[in-house]
Write a protein that binds this DNA or RNA. Structure first.
Lengths: 202, 202
DNA sequence: CCATATAACATACCCAAGTATGATACCAAG
DNA sequence: CTTGGTATCATACTTGGGTATGTTATATGG
């Protein structure tokens, strides 16, 4: 068991995989994720399910792959804010930009991500993978702030990072439930102010 | 369209509905939600799918119905803490007990709830229904605190309640992803302290 | 007391995700 | 050059949630 879904080796394979991915993303954007079947995608590409499942382990894996590219953006943002004065301010801006990225991805995609990640058969969810840049950067910013005395250090930076991220994830989850009917970035800004003032030592 | 799924009218109907519900809960507990098919449930009860879908609109509706009973507990908790001195303290205890209730429900059930509520075809998710006792009580406690000057009032109580609940929901979501492998109540306690100190006016 | 509506199911079916398996083509080693 | 392994797909199937529709029993109003 445990299918071997390796990356494509041949030129043809690479093209096929990419075609499936691109077509899927395009169809999702046009008709909505749940209105597109895997057969729809395969028909348009000109292959069959056999090809699809040779490269992707499920339908939502396509969305997740798109979502995973977010990590590159996080790194970029982290680089852009490197010259800000205070660590607390870095954290604020980083968080704001991260939330903006989610908002830009859109409700539909975020729904699929949050839906599939908590599915019963999910083994090791990507969302809580500690190797993600989101966690690493948040952790480093907090640790940096703690060392500079800008952020209280009675809680481990790792623990604080996870807690903080979870808070915002809760807002995004709610934003998905509400079909994006409120200003996510504004809400998260407000929340950040609320929490951040207390993260700093008295 | 829009099937009429009304409550049972006859004695027989009431019994059947209850038998389906009880059997489903029992099977879920024994074999796990995703290892139990609707046909399994019906077989054990001795009815067919027709009966099932006459009373429930989906499989996870069973879990949700169990989850909805939580509202009664919220009310009970709210009653129990009525004689606490400060509103902030009431809020703290209420929150703590609410999180405990979730932890008691268990990872499996909470997973199903959070999974199904964000499903693509979900219209009006119960989780964000403003009529839930969770929202009403949290809102009232905050408003009470604001009036007594214990909680800052530069943010509307309704908005603050939703934000607060979402923060904890994020922790619970993460707890589900982690398959309950950390102390949810402890984490939420820590988080509450973090946020709450800042909710109070300077 | 009879007509009619509808609750309470059963039967048969659809749909789409995912699987099992098989065919072909290609590459690499002997 | 040939043989074996494997990447790349196609075909056919399974599975399970959900639907459409039909049949029967029962409650209710005239």
């Amino acid at each position: 068991m445990a299918k071997k879904r390796t990356a494509p080796r041949t030129e043809k394979g690479i093209n096929t995989r990419q075609a499936i991915f691109d077509t899927a993303i395009a169809l999702f954007a046009k008709r909505g994720y749940d209105k597109v079947t895997i057969d729809d995608i395969c028909d348009k590409v000109g292959v069959t399910k056999g090809a699809f499942y040779n490269y992707f382990e499920s339908k939502d894996q396509i969305i997740l792959e798109e979502f995973m590219r977010m990590d590159d953006h996080y790194v970029k943002v982290a680089h852009d804010i490197a010259d800000l004065k205070s660590s607390a301010e870095k954290l604020r801006v980083f968080n704001r930009e991260a939330v903006k990225l989610m908002a830009d991805l859109g409700v539909t995609m975020m729904k699929v991500v949050y839906h599939s990640q908590i599915a019963p058969n999910m083994r090791r969810p990507y969302l809580m993978d500690g190797r993600r840049s989101l966690y690493k950067i948040t952790n480093e910013l907090i640790k940096e702030g703690q060392e500079k005395g800008e952020i209280r250090d009675d809680i481990a930076s790792e623990e604080m990072a996870v807690m903080l991220i979870n808070c915002f994830r809760g807002q995004i989850y709610h934003w998905c439930l509400a079909n994006g009917s409120f200003d996510l970035v504004g809400t998260c800004d407000t929340l950040f102010d609320l929490i951040m003032d207390r993260l700093t030592p008295r």
